[in-house]
Design a protein around this nucleic acid. Structure first.
Length: 305
DNA sequence: CGAGTTTGACCAGCGC
DNA sequence: GCGCTGGTCAAACTCG
């Protein structure tokens, strides 16, 4: 059992068979960045077409990952738009939306994310875990709740890219067909259920695949290097960053258009003006519009210099 | 001492 | 039903 299981080894971004956009509203974004410092670019916040190196990925590489257009994404993702959204509420919305067609389990545990609320290791560390706890904390018979996910492919030398949030690693696993392990991170905010997976492409070790799952319900804690992002409320809260339209889907757009020989060049033609236009046309109610586009992309603290 | 990481074990889902 | 694999837990460990 080596690799014959997976017909398309390599950048197995799907990783598992659950990567099906149609079913779980996941999307895939691809960005390339020369510098680790251009984290914002990875998120599209400051993506300059001339700086971004969109990687062309063969459709086969994505297997069952459906490609959708950014404009569709917003409508297809179970969004939690309420500005006062709380983590548990967000999870509930997502869970219900996501599992709507799933066994109608109306999983009470979903809404009651509070039930799993404090992952706070009530394990009474030191008490020594009972040698035989069958469920090991996880409710048995309780399906794993999959929240919307999306992945970034980033060319970077560092595995764990700074995104303004603080993450705690809770696991690492060797991945099939990949010499590189996959790391599992969880938002350190006890009320935030967002998770993140980080792995390197087996084909191109310089590419880091970061997969986000869930929605943040809080602000970032800021970049260690000084900058502070305050934008992600929109980004994470809606799963459609103010830049949803800023994101380019090299394959996706033409996949949908069908005819256009969707080339990278074409996606590169989507100028910043277009993004700006959209930003102006659809100002996020959650964002201070008086700040203009800059306010959308650069927090006040970062503008000084 | 608290926060974060490491790591082995456990569990669930899925394909055969 | 079985085995494989991904995902998670939690004790032990490390670090600041």
């Amino acid at each position: 059992m080596d690799d014959n299981d997976n017909p398309d080894p390599g950048t197995d971004i799907s990783g598992d068979s659950s990567w099906t956009l149609g079913a779980e509203s996941e999307s895939v974004y691809f960005f390339g960045s020369d510098r680790e410092s251009s984290i914002l670019s990875e998120f599209g916040w400051n993506l300059q077409p001339e700086e971004a190196h969109h990687r062309s990925l063969e459709p086969e590489r994505f297997g069952d990952v459906e490609r959708i257009e950014s404009s569709d994404l917003a409508g297809r993702l179970p969004l939690a738009e309420s500005s006062g959204l709380e983590c548990s509420a967000a999870a509930a919305q997502i869970g219900s939306a996501e599992k709507a067609g799933d066994a109608s389990t109306s999983n009470p545990s979903v809404s009651s994310s509070s039930s799993e609320d404090p992952p706070e290791k009530s394990t009474g560390s030191g008490g020594g875990k009972p040698p035989e706890i069958p469920s090991k904390g996880r409710k048995k018979g309780q399906k794993r709740i999959r929240q919307p996910r999306f992945a970034f492919m980033t060319k970077s030398e560092v595995d764990h890219l700074e995104d303004g949030y603080r993450w705690r690693k809770y696991g690492q696993k060797a991945v099939k067909n990949s010499p590189f392990p996959r790391s599992y991170y969880r938002c350190t905010n006890s009320k935030c259920t967002v998770k993140k997976r980080v792995e390197r492409s087996s084909e191109d070790p310089s590419i880091v695949i970061t997969t986000y799952e869930g929605q943040h319900c809080h602000h970032t804690v800021g970049f260690p290097r000084g900058g502070v992002i305050s934008q992600e409320v929109t980004f994470d809260g809606r799963m459609t960053p103010p830049l949803t339209s800023h994101f380019y889907f090299p394959d996706m757009s033409f996949h949908r258009e069908g005819s256009h020989s969707g080339s990278m060049a074409q996606s590169h033609q989507v100028p910043a003006q277009a993004r700006e236009a959209r930003a102006l046309a659809e100002p996020s109610p959650q964002l201070p519009t008086d700040e203009g586009l800059l306010g959308d992309m650069v927090p006040p603290g970062m503008r000084n210099g």
